[in-house]
Design a protein around this nucleic acid. Structure first.
Length: 469
DNA sequence: TCTGGGGTCCTAGGACCC
DNA sequence: TCTGGGGTCCTAGGACCC
């Protein structure tokens, strides 16, 4: 099909005019034909846009010296998190331990992850995509869905042309390549973005679906995991096309709702909308692993305290109040020991939570046990409402603390994490055993990015309760 | 030298009520 | 002795994702 792209148009300088005759020229027969065909081939036109080796690519975009070289992020965790194309070619795979990488591939550069920078790139990615449609779902730090249904005339481009423009803009402006899939549903679009990488572009119209599903094992389909694959295999279903071709009545009899919807999506009927609204968190959790493991009660509680401070601070950022918490310890053999506590009163103050944690900690802590991690899970979150007066004057304390934390949050915003912390977290903040702690924060290579803050530590030593046995 | 960290959604099944 | 059946709400835990 003869499509016309913006690049060609720009060259002819056709876009800078509002002259209706010229507009008529732009709408070439092939474009018009394509638009009229598209309604049946793409009842909906959904893009899935996926960063190629995103973290590693951002590192390379940020630092010229890393470009073209095999690099891996994840130094702070001891396993490969993101692997550059060059490193993938050497045979490095996800979650490979850093020691192994260094031993087998000494030429590979291992850098610590820098989530603040990745987040900034991520936000820019969304904003670039939003130039073309407002219907954008921020699916993850390096992926989004976008619904461009019906926008060909507006952009004077085919759906594929729009996809190409977005891909070009992203590459040009971020220095990071993305792979794009275009399809009539989210599942098909996602299949497309993974089809050809890196910097791929795969268009799967309703008529093309069969061709692609025939080549796709069920495990490769988004939202079909290990367990479902096993179950499908037991039913002698290996291939995505076999799901798509099942009778609707059979699907309804044999599967639960998610797979029934999956069946629709695979057949090109969109049931999973591109979700624009960014919903508030329903739960927030923070967990940190430390090496070596520890049996030390005070150390463990201090780690927990630090996690609580961090999690609660994230809740405050979204103006959320916490109604229930769970704290857990993770043993060396990956057992979880959890206790859940319902709070009498909703709060976003770490002192309240740490107090509850302290009284419940002994329920999960067993002496002489090696623990590798501890964490907290905040649940039953609700949006902060207008404060009601109570009979006992607790409101004054509450408001006072809220003001205190409002100001502390500003300090954190300005000077970075761990600038001010509770006495109960002291041990964890200062203990070098904490993998991913201060000493591992990557240096910023001279590039100042939007939204950054100077990282400096001010000494405000002791605010609140330390945990006493 | 196994195995990080942060989420969401769905279903089964128990509790409770009429 | 017998002891139906339906509804709602909540929670635990499984499954999946990046």
């Amino acid at each position: 099909m003869n499509t016309i792209t913006f690049t060609q148009l720009d060259k002819k300088n056709l876009l800078s005019t509002t002259d209706p005759k010229r507009v008529a020229i732009i709408q070439t027969p092939s474009l018009i034909e394509s638009i009229s065909n598209s309604a049946s081939l793409f009842p909906k036109a959904i893009l899935h846009i996926d960063g190629d080796s995103f973290f590693a690519s951002v590192e390379q975009a940020q630092n010229k010296n890393l470009r073209g070289k095999p690099i891996v992020t994840g130094a702070e965790r001891g396993i490969a998190t993101s692997i550059s194309i060059e490193a993938k070619r050497l045979g490095i795979t996800r979650a490979m331990p850093v020691w192994e990488i260094k031993k087998k591939f000494p030429e590979v550069i291992v850098v610590p992850g820098d989530y603040e920078t990745y987040t900034i790139y991520s936000k820019r990615m969304y904003s670039i995509v939003r130039r073309y449609t407002s219907v954008v779902e921020e699916y993850s730090i390096d992926e989004c869905f976008a619904d461009i249904t019906g926008l060909q005339r507006f952009h004077r481009l085919t759906y594929k042309g729009i996809a190409e423009r977005i891909s070009n803009d992203l590459y040009k402006e971020l220095g990071v390549s993305f792979s794009v899939g275009l399809g009539p549903t989210k599942v098909i679009a996602k299949l497309g973005s993974g089809w050809k990488k890196p910097h791929g572009m795969t268009v799967i119209s309703k008529a093309d679906i069969e061709k692609y599903l025939k080549l796709t094992p069920v495990r490769k389909i988004w939202n079909i995991g290990k367990k479902t694959t096993e179950r499908l295999n037991k039913m002698h279903i290996q291939n995505a096309i076999e799901i798509a071709r099942m009778q609707k009545t059979t699907v309804e009899k044999v599967f639960y709702k998610p797979m029934q919807e999956m069946w629709m999506e695979l057949n090109g009927e969109s049931v999973w909308e591109v979700n624009v609204t960014k919903e508030k968190h329903k739960s927030i959790s923070t967990t940190k692993t430390f090496t070596p493991p520890s049996q030390d009660k005070a150390f463990l509680f201090s780690q927990l305290s630090k996690n609580i401070e961090e999690a609660v601070s994230r809740a405050r950022k979204e103006d959320l109040l916490i109604n229930s918490i769970a704290i857990f310890l993770k043993t060396q053999d990956f057992g979880y020991h959890t206790v859940e506590v319902k709070l009498r009163d909703s709060t976003n103050n770490p002192i309240d939570i740490i107090r509850e944690a302290a009284t419940n900690f002994t329920k999960i802590y067993k002496p002489h046990t090696d623990y590798r991690a501890t964490g907290v899970w905040l649940t039953k979150l609700e949006t902060k409402k207008v404060e009601q007066l109570d009979l006992f004057g607790n409101i004054c304390r509450k408001i006072g603390l809220q003001n205190l934390y409002k100001n502390l949050d500003l300090v954190t915003q300005k000077f970075g994490k761990n600038t001010v912390f509770l006495g109960s977290s002291f041990n964890a903040v200062t203990d070098p055993r904490h993998v991913g702690g201060k000493e591992k924060v990557p240096e910023r290579r001279g590039v100042i990015l939007f939204g950054e803050s100077a990282k400096r530590r001010v000494a405000v030593p002791y605010l609140g309760m330390a945990w006493c046995n």
